[in-house]
Simulated assay, not measured.
Amino acid sequence: SKMGSDVGGNTPEAAAVATEPATADDILVRRYPATVVEVDRLYAIEDPDDEPFKSKYAASALLEELEAQLTPLLTKIITTTTAAMEATKLGDDGGEKGANASASADDRDASREALLDVRALLTYRRGAIAVDTEEWARGEALLMTALEGLCRPTASSHWSSAECRAALLDTNNLLGVLWTNRSEPDRALPFLRDAQAVYNAHDSSGGGGG
């Protein structure tokens, strides 16, 4: 496999991405930050000419692994939320029970949105790596998926909004460059304009973080 899974597998950061079932807090607080640290380390490695993308493939494999851990957790949260909404429609007795149910729903909503942010960020990073490793079609598909996640109607304005904003800017830029390199400037222009709009919106707000 060209993913080069032997690279960087023994570091503390890589070890933090464990195989036990994930929780939302575990992914947000431990696994995702640790994965980003290790991916950035791998991305900076200059590989030998005979395997020029070995470390980048390893970085992509780590991102894909975490996304695989995140997906069933998201499904569980969405299923639980749907079931709770159905129960509410059937009626509850209000009072303390109703307040507790509302608080639980808010927690689930926050976890869901934060995990959707992480999934979009993981997909963006995989797409950026694919572009860098000259897998143009794969990169485009991943970046378009990331764009959908980053621009979803419920996209959060909290947690890692600065990180999401930077990813949105870079995703649009990369897609613009991909289409420019294909000599299709008309298809590149909307992405480049969107990237400029993201930059301008951030710049006009004084560059403050979210």
Rank of each mutant, 00 (worst) to 15 (best):
G98F: 09
S102I: 06
T133H: 01
W136F: 09
A110E: 13
T88E: 15
D93R: 12
E140W: 01
G95D: 14
A83R: 13
G95T: 06
A137F: 09
I129F: 00
D109Y: 14
R138W: 00
N100C: 02
L116A: 06
W136T: 13
S111P: 02
R108C: 06
T82M: 09
R119A: 06
V118P: 04
A101Y: 04
T133Y: 03
D109F: 13
T80S: 14
E134A: 12
D92R: 08
L116H: 02
A130T: 00
K97E: 15
E134P: 01
W136G: 08
T88K: 13
T133G: 01
G127T: 02
E113I: 05
S111H: 12
D132F: 06
T133S: 01
T81Y: 06
E113K: 11
V131I: 15
A110C: 02
L116I: 03
D132V: 03
G127F: 03
D109N: 10
M85W: 00
Y124S: 02
A128R: 04
T80K: 12
M85S: 11
G95R: 08
V118T: 05
A128T: 01
L121E: 07
T81L: 11
A84L: 13
R108F: 08
K97F: 15
G95Q: 05
W136E: 14
L90H: 10
A101N: 12
A105P: 00
G127Y: 03
D109A: 14
G139E: 03
N100M: 12
A110Q: 10
G127A: 08
A99E: 15
T82S: 13
G94V: 08
Y124E: 05
D93W: 10
A110N: 10
T123E: 01
A101L: 11
D132N: 11
A137P: 00
T133A: 00
S102P: 02
D106F: 10
E135S: 11
M85Y: 09
A120S: 11
W136N: 09
A99H: 07
D109L: 15
E134S: 11
E113G: 00
K97Q: 14
E86G: 05
I78A: 08
K89C: 06
A128L: 06
E96F: 12
A110L: 09
V118I: 11
A114E: 13
G94F: 08
R112T: 09
T79P: 00
A99I: 09
R119K: 10
V118R: 02
R119L: 02
V131F: 07
A83M: 07
A103N: 07
L116K: 06
G139Y: 05
D92P: 04
E140L: 03
T81F: 05
R112C: 04
N100W: 05
R119P: 00
G91C: 08
R119I: 00
A128G: 05
A87K: 12
G139M: 03
K89M: 10
E86W: 04
V131A: 06
K89R: 12
D92N: 15
T81C: 04
D106L: 11
A130C: 03
Y124A: 06
